[in-house]
């Protein structure tokens, strides 16, 4: 074998190896976060550490997705390199559609106090009306392709019957957003604020802090341990 994980897995017995590999599969393949209750490798501190090492080798990291829930996401440093090279960045229309969903399903409900919790999940659908702007820009066919891609990638989730008036489906943010690390989630929030209110003091504070580069470093270190 010339696998990437051999030296990590080699010293283990069948049972532990099995636990580790199945947890790896659950984290990497599952659409929703995995529960500690079902996976011994997430419960045991030593195994979870090994699991994180496995993920680290593939440019991934453990992401906590709630109490006793875990998923995996890109390591922040790796994500930065990927983004810098333009690897894995969605095409503009896909991104625009996703951002509209995030604004309508998360940002506005939150600003109106209708949405609690600190993640990018939401129960407020973004209706076809909200997305109509994009369909006018580029044509219906292209938009539906983009949405199909987003659905397949788990970035948006279809909700039926939210807007019966308009043709087309309604969406909420998909489970793939739960894979974002705290730093990535925060970056998303800040990018949104910078785009929406570039002249606000919030934007200034974000810019200043990014220039100093300090807080990001400390948060990511903390979450990674």
């Amino acid at each position: 074998m010339s696998g990437l994980f051999d030296d990590l897995l080699q010293p283990l017995g069948d049972k532990q190896r099995d636990a580790l590999v199945s947890a790896w599969a659950a984290l990497e393949y599952g659409s929703e976060p995995a529960s500690e209750a079902a996976l011994p490798a997430l419960r045991d501190a030593a195994l979870r550490h090994l699991l994180d090492q496995m993920l680290q080798r593939t440019g991934r990291t453990l992401v906590r997705a709630g109490a006793y829930l875990w998923t995996s996401g890109y390591r922040d440093d790796i994500a930065a390199v990927l983004a810098a090279n333009g690897w894995g960045i969605l095409p503009p229309l896909e991104r625009a559609a996703l951002i509209l969903v995030l604004i309508h399903s998360v940002a506005i409900p939150r600003a109106e106090g209708r949405l609690a919790g600190d993640d990018w999940q939401s129960t407020h659908p973004t209706t076809p009306t909200h997305l109509r702007k994009l369909s006018q820009v580029r044509g219906q066919r292209r938009l539906s392709d983009a949405l199909q891609w987003l659905r397949a990638a788990g970035l948006v989730r279809l909700v039926r019957g939210a807007d019966s008036e308009m043709a087309g489906a309604s969406y909420v943010p998909g489970p793939a957003l739960r894979r974002l690390t705290p730093a990535a989630r925060k970056r998303l929030q800040e990018n949104l604020i910078l785009a929406v209110g570039p002249d606000t003091a919030l934007a200034t504070a974000i810019t200043v802090r990014r220039r100093l580069g300090r807080p990001e470093v400390t948060t990511s270190q903390r979450s990674g341990s």
């Binding site: 890109y74 994500a79 930065a80 990927l82 983004a83 690897w87 894995g88 960045i89 969605l90 503009p92 229309l93 991104r95 625009a96 996703l98 951002i99 509209l100 604004i103 309508h104 940002a107 506005i108 600003a111 909200h130 702007k133 994009l134 820009v137 580029r138 990638a153 788990g154 970035l155 793939a176 894979r179 974002l180 990535a184 970056r187 998303l188 990018n191 949104l192 785009a195 929406v196 209110g197």
Partner: peptide
Amino acid sequence: MWRRFARRATVEELAAVLADQVFD
């Protein structure tokens, strides 16, 4: 402010927000 942005921003402006996010 959010609504105004969602209504008025161009595709490029919208897309720029996710220019540094990598998804699966």
